Amino acid sequence: MKVKEVAELFDISIRTLHHYDQIGLLTPKDVTDAGYRVYSEDNLETLQQILFFRELGFPLKEIQTMMHNPSFNKKEAFILQRKMLIEKRNKLDKMIENIDKTLQHLMGETQYTYKERFENMNMKISQYEEEARHRWGNQAVDEVSSKLNNLSKDEQIELSDSWDNIFNKLASLRNHSPKSKEVQIEIKQWYDFLNENFSNYSLDAFYGLGQLYIQDERFTKHIDRYGEGLALFMSEAMKVFTVQQKRGHSDGHHD
């Protein structure tokens, strides 16, 4: 489908589709010689999920982070979105019922207590929304910040020293292949360090973190202070580590 057809199908503006393309959120599968964007069926499914996330209140930047996460799964996301939309529908039904009863009360038809009037006004964040953010969003990064803030000054210094040692050692190995034994030993140190001190990182989450090092300029800028190009080098090494560990687990399982 061309951009105009997609815009009409989803009832959104062509400008919106151009913006999604510009920020790398939804890139058309092809561009014709005449310069027309052409969207595939896979593109349309991606757009469908973007619009569902938007309807559920997720900002574009957060949607981009989640959908670019290597562990993001379209089917699982649709299931979660369905749960969130049903939950939203139930909330709206309760709020409509609340308004009806309030109007009846104001017209003197019924008595409606304050407790009854406000009991259906629960606006807390959906548990499914939290799950989506936890699995594919920035929550893991937020957890690290929270953990650091809860440590004593001495503990922060000790942790920072260990952190620096690992990054400095990796920076000194930048001329090696990310697949080399020396590099993989240090990357395992980083993986173990994160799991021991911050959160339980699965292999997929560790891989995703490595991708953030090169996708998010805040990470890249911070890591490259230890040595230019270190963020990209670590990202590649973390990818190798993930693949090798998964292969090892798979081989062990078959044995």
Rank of each mutant, 00 (worst) to 15 (best):
K91P: 08
H19A: 11
R218M: 00
N120G: 11
W190T: 03
T46N: 13
I63S: 05
K29R: 14
F53Y: 04
N138T: 06
K101R: 12
D21T: 08
K124A: 15
F241Y: 15
G208T: 02
E5D: 13
I96N: 08
S235F: 04
I166E: 02
M66L: 12
I166Y: 02
A34D: 02
S162Q: 11
N138D: 15
I185Y: 01
F52D: 09
Y207W: 08
L230G: 13
Y39C: 02
T65L: 03
G248P: 00
G227L: 05
K4V: 07
W190H: 10
G24M: 06
F53N: 03
A140G: 04
G57M: 11
S180Q: 06
F241S: 05
I187C: 11
E76Y: 02
K75E: 12
E182P: 05
F58D: 04
T242W: 03
E131T: 09
V144Y: 02
G248S: 15
E109Y: 12
S177I: 00
N122M: 07
A7H: 11
F167Y: 11
M84S: 07
E217V: 03
I79T: 08
Y207L: 11
F53D: 02
G210S: 05
F52R: 13
L44E: 00
L230T: 01
W136A: 00
R89A: 14
G108S: 05
F53P: 06
Y201K: 03
F118C: 04
E131H: 06
M95Y: 07
Q64W: 01
V243I: 15
M84G: 08
F78W: 07
G57F: 13
R174K: 15
D192Y: 06
H253E: 09
A34H: 04
L151K: 07
D142P: 01
K101F: 15
Q64P: 03
N150H: 09
I23V: 14
T110Q: 15
F193P: 00
M107E: 13
N98L: 12
I166K: 07
R218Y: 09
N122W: 02
V144N: 02
I214T: 14
H253N: 05
G252N: 11
M66Y: 08
I187P: 01
A205D: 04
K153C: 04
F167C: 03
S40V: 06
I14D: 07
I166P: 09
S235W: 01
Y112P: 07
I23N: 10
H249I: 05
N197D: 01
N200C: 02
V144G: 05
A205C: 09
Q184T: 05
H254R: 14
K83R: 15
L209G: 01
E228A: 09
N197Q: 01
H249M: 13
K94G: 10
R247A: 12
K124Y: 14
D164E: 09
K75F: 12
K221Y: 09
D100N: 07
D192M: 08
T110I: 15
H68L: 15
V3A: 05
M67H: 10
R225W: 11
H176C: 05
Q81A: 14
L44N: 01
L148Y: 06
T46G: 07
Y191H: 10
